[in-house]
Each structure stands twice: as C-alpha cells, then as structure tokens.
C-alpha cells in the first residue's frame, strides 16, 4: 500500500477506534450509574455499612452524585481520558495502583494462554489436513467442537483434579509457580484454541478446494510445502482476525481461571469488585478491557495489507464492474 493511501486509512481506523472506546465507556457508565439508582449512594446509605451523615456528604460530593447524570458522565469520562481511573470504594486506594499490582500476573497468564492456544490450534489444523482420512482427520476435526462444548471452569477443575490431586504435577497452594501457570494457561487457552482451530480448519479446507492449490499440487510440491505456502499462508488474514477477537475471550476467561486456580490478577480483581459492589473498580477494569480489545483489533486491521497484497492498493486500483 502506498503511503498516500495507507495514512488516511490508518487515521480513519484510529478515529473509529476512539469512538468505539468512548461508546464502550459510556455504555458501562450507563449500566452502572444510571439504571438501578446509583450504587455508591446505595452502599453509603446502607445502614449495615455504618456510615454517618458527615462521612457520606464529602464522598457524594467527590463522586459528584448530587450533579445531573450528564455532568457526572462528562466528569467521569474526562478523568478516564486523562488516565485517572478513580478510587476504590472498598480499598480506598487508586484503582490504577491496584491494577498495576494485578497486571503482571494476568499478562503472564494471558500471554502463555495465547501461546498455548496458537500451538494447539496449529497442531490440530495440521492434523486435520495430513492425518489418514477416516480416523485421524475425523478426530482432529471433532476436537474443537468438543472443547467448545465444555465450560471453561470444568476444564480448569479437571486439570486441577487430574494433574494436581492425582498426579501431583503442581500444587494449588502455589498458584504462581511455573507448572501451575502452565496449567492455568491451558484452562484459559483451550477454548480459545478451539475457536482458532475451527476458523483455521475451515479456511484450510477452503484453500484446499481452490484452483491454485490444485495447480500447485500438479507442480509436484510436497504436502508440507503445500500446507505452508498454499494453505496456511492464504489463511493468515482470517486467523489474525480470530486471534484479535479472542483477546476478549482471554480477558473474560481470566475471571474464572484466576478464581479457580487461586491466582491474584485482573480477573480476580474484577471478581472481588463484583462481590463487594466496588463500582469504580469495575467501571475502570471493564473499560480498559474494551480499550485493549479495540487496540489489538486496530493493530490487526493495520496488519491486513501486509498479509494480503490485494488490500495494498484497494484505493488505487478500482476495477469497473
């Protein structure tokens, strides 16, 4: 893609991404702050929590709960845009500090899970094309559908039951150990790998039915060359799309996985924020998840022209119908 056509394309996509982030923040704000009365006052006024009138007033003022909703929204989103994530109601600490504490563990978990997911998906996809037809391929093709029918918490519990309790490969009392991390990543990564594998297999099959695949085969290529150059390479674009979309799956799934494996991380932070109704934390974390999702997908979009030469001059070479 020439520079003249790439820059406007990138700028347009960036603007689009900002709009989506803004909307996602506002939507979360709407759900949390407007619909069922406002949760902060609910909590403060709950007699069980034992706040006095004098304590309540400054907090209400701090959150601007005495102002019109639109103004509250504006204040919240301005702060968010400036990187101020607010203060936890329960821990009385800045959300950003809590997030920074929790982030490394979750990044390690999600990164390992994505790696595991990619390796598994690739292995299953290769098996689906190269194994003997009736049994080998059949099994490889059923696996993704099967693992997509298993709740992720069940995968986690089975891994713990088998590999921690029966085989003793890791201890759940040390959730951040290397072995425990790998198994947690498996629990998180298996559903993601199944999604990627389904897309990959569908695309590999599609490529295998293309005329250029037949022509390359007639050229005398080996199966592994055919797979890499004429099946996998043309499938890269939909797979990158799927990987970018499954970032959301990883972020949402970390909630359950971290809870089951007893890890401290962003997911368990969300879980405790939900249980304690700590809405500033919840609002920030969910909005940040949306930001991550949007940015990853933006990166994927900007990558497409590299993966498919036909997209490089989409603007330049229009053809008549």
């Amino acid at each position: 893609m020439s520079r003249q056509s790439f820059l406007p394309f990138a700028a347009r996509r960036l603007g689009h991404a900002l709009v989506v982030i803004l909307l996602a923040y506002s939507f979360t704000f709407l759900i949390i702050s407007v619909l069922p009365g406002d949760p902060v006052s609910n909590m403060l006024l709950d007699p069980e929590n034992g706040f006095t009138e004098e304590e309540i007033a400054p907090i209400i003022a701090h959150y601007g709960l005495d102002r019109p909703v639109l103004e509250q929204w504006w204040r919240a989103i301005s702060r968010f845009a400036l990187g101020d994530l607010g203060i936890s109601l329960r821990a009385s600490r800045p959300v950003s500090a809590m997030l920074l504490e929790a982030l490394p563990s979750t990044l390690v978990l999600a990164g390992t899970a994505m790696l595991v997911a990619l390796l598994l998906a690739l292995a299953i996809a290769y098996a689906s094309q190269s194994l003997p037809r009736r049994w080998g391929q059949g099994v490889a093709r059923v696996l993704p559908a099967l693992s997509l029918s298993v709740p992720s918490f069940v995968i986690g519990l089975v891994l713990i039951q088998v590999f921690a309790f029966q085989l003793g490969l890791f201890r759940i009392t040390d959730p951040n150990g290397a072995a425990a991390t790998v198994f947690a990543a498996l629990a998180l990564g298996i559903p993601v790998s199944a999604q990627i594998a389904e897309v990959l297999i569908a695309n590999l099959d599609h490529e295998a039915g293309q005329e250029y695949f037949a022509v390359a085969r007639a050229r005398g290529l080996r199966l592994s060359q055919l797979f890499a150059r004429h099946q996998l390479r043309p499938s890269a674009l939909p797979v990158v799309t799927m990987i970018a979309v499954s970032i959301g799956e990883l972020l949402g799934g970390s909630l359950i996985t971290e809870t089951i494996f007893g890890r401290k991380g962003v997911g368990s932070l969300v879980q405790s924020a939900v249980v304690t109704q700590d809405f500033p934390v919840l609002q920030s974390l969910v909005s940040l998840a949306a930001v991550v999702f949007v940015l990853v997908n933006l990166a994927a979009d900007l990558l497409y022209p590299l993966l498919d030469p036909r997209l490089r001059r989409r603007a330049a070479a229009g053809r008549p119908a």
């Binding site: 293309q210 005329e211 250029y212 022509v215 150059r229 004429h230 043309p234």
Partner: peptide
C-alpha cells in the same frame, strides 16, 4: 488450468 484468475496463489 481453466480459470487463470484463480490458478495462482493471490498472496504470493
């Protein structure tokens, strides 16, 4: 082959 538009891998 029959259809030259489809007979070469588009991404290579």
């Amino acid at each position: 082959p029959q259809d030259p538009q489809n007979a070469l891998n588009p991404v290579r």
